[in-house]
Amino acid sequence: MELGAFSVSLAVKDIAASRAFYEKLGFAAIMGEEAQNWLIMKNGDHVIGLFQGMFDKNILTFNPGWNANSETLPTFTDIRQIQQALKTGGIEVGADIDPESTGPANFSITDPDGNVILFDQHV
């Protein structure tokens, strides 16, 4: 099962302070608006999202259909197939995606330690 691009979405208290910190680690903002309290930052193939006031905890994120540069892959495992495989494997899934739908969709799961994993397909 190909999960797509991986990133960590961080729930930050002060987006400007977090941006300055991660810039010192070599990350640069590639998407988002600090004034809207969200930024996507990248260092090589490593991607982090900074989100102030949007959710309570950090989230692991997979983007089916994208590579590390947010470019659409020519072939990929559709999010609906991923969701079905996880359900078949006994993993409880959040809101179901209509299996007959196409295009962008998302769902989340929670690991045994309470970490949220978001599957967010944009294509």
Rank of each mutant, 00 (worst) to 15 (best):
G44Y: 13
H122R: 10
T72G: 06
L73V: 02
E71T: 04
F51H: 04
A11P: 03
P104C: 04
F27M: 04
S101W: 10
S18I: 01
P74D: 12
A16H: 08
Q52Y: 11
S108N: 13
D111Q: 05
Q83K: 07
F62D: 00
F119E: 00
F76K: 01
P112F: 15
S70M: 15
D120H: 10
W66D: 04
S108K: 14
S9T: 12
F51T: 01
I40M: 08
D113A: 15
G103F: 13
L60E: 06
L3W: 02
S108P: 09
R80W: 02
K24F: 11
E71Y: 10
A105G: 08
A11R: 03
P74M: 13
N69H: 07
N67S: 01
Q83D: 12
T75W: 07
D96I: 02
T75F: 06
G114W: 07
A85S: 15
Y22W: 14
N115F: 14
P99A: 14
N37L: 11
Q81S: 13
A20V: 07
I117Q: 04
E34N: 10
I30A: 06
F76A: 00
G90W: 12
L60A: 08
T88H: 09
P104V: 05
R19H: 09
G44K: 11
G89N: 09
F6E: 08
G4P: 01
A105S: 10
L60Q: 09
E100N: 14
D98A: 01
D113H: 13
G114M: 02
K57T: 15
G49C: 11
K57I: 10
S101C: 09
I59Q: 07
A5V: 03
K57S: 15
L25I: 02
H46T: 15
P64D: 00
G53L: 07
E33I: 05
E2T: 05
F62S: 02
I117V: 09
Q52P: 06
G4V: 05
P99S: 12
M1T: 11
L3D: 01
V12T: 02
N63D: 05
S101K: 06
A20M: 06
D14V: 02
D96H: 08
D14G: 01
S9Q: 13
P99G: 04
K57D: 15
S7W: 01
D113K: 10
L50S: 00
H46E: 15
S7L: 02
D14N: 12
L25P: 11
D14R: 04
G103Q: 11
L39F: 04
L73W: 01
G103Y: 07
D14A: 04
T77V: 07
I30C: 03
I40C: 02
A28W: 13
S9C: 12
A17P: 00
P64G: 05
